[in-house]
């Protein structure tokens, strides 16, 4: 029966001791320990969330970079194509221009040549006329030194004239 009869002294001391233990541990051990534990848990959770956010940001940036790169590549291609077109156009234009210029110059040359020719011809004609006149004068002068011959000629010319 002794075994199941609580002793007064032990009840008294256990109550006091346990109360003091609860107070001291509660204030100086459990509070800081549990506080530190929950702080650390919160920190870990925050860190995980931040890591997740960073990962998302990273993938977003990567996507953005990729699209930027794609865009840049397309732009470059566009520019290159444009440049090629421009170049071809320029070549074509230059050729055409050269053709036209050539033709124009040839035309000009031809006109000049014709002009020169005409001038030369006129000159030659004049020379020939002058020369002919000179010759004719000289001939005539020689021919018409006697009257007989002059008459013959006049008569001959008159005969030739047909009315």
């Amino acid at each position: 029966m002794d075994l199941v009869t609580p002793a007064l002294g032990l009840v008294f001391w256990t109550t006091i001791s346990f109360g003091i233990l609860l107070f001291i541990l509660g204030k100086f051990a459990w509070k800081p320990i549990l506080g530190a534990l929950s702080d650390r848990e919160r920190f870990i959770e925050d860190s995980l969330q931040k890591a997740e956010a960073a990962k998302e940001e990273m993938s977003r940036l990567t996507n953005e970079n990729e699209s930027l790169l794609k865009q840049a590549r397309a732009e470059r291609d566009q520019i290159l194509t444009d440049a090629r077109k421009v170049k071809e156009q320029m070549i074509v234009d230059a050729k055409e221009l050269a053709h036209k210029e050539g033709a124009r110059m040839i035309e000009l040359a031809r006109v000049e040549i014709n002009n020169q020719k005409a001038i030369a011809m006129a000159d030659v004609k004049n020379q020939v006329a002058t020369l002919s006149l000179d010759i004719a004068e000289k001939v005539l002068r020689k021919q018409f030194e006697d009257h007989q011959k002059q008459d013959e000629l006049v008569s001959q010319l008159l005969k030739e004239v047909k009315l």
Partner: peptide, 24 residues
Amino acid sequence: YDFSITRNVASMWLGMIVLLIVFF
């Protein structure tokens, strides 16, 4: 009325001291 520091009280205090040292 017996309020003695018996063996159980003393050993309880021993246990408490161990607890306090450990948890501090």
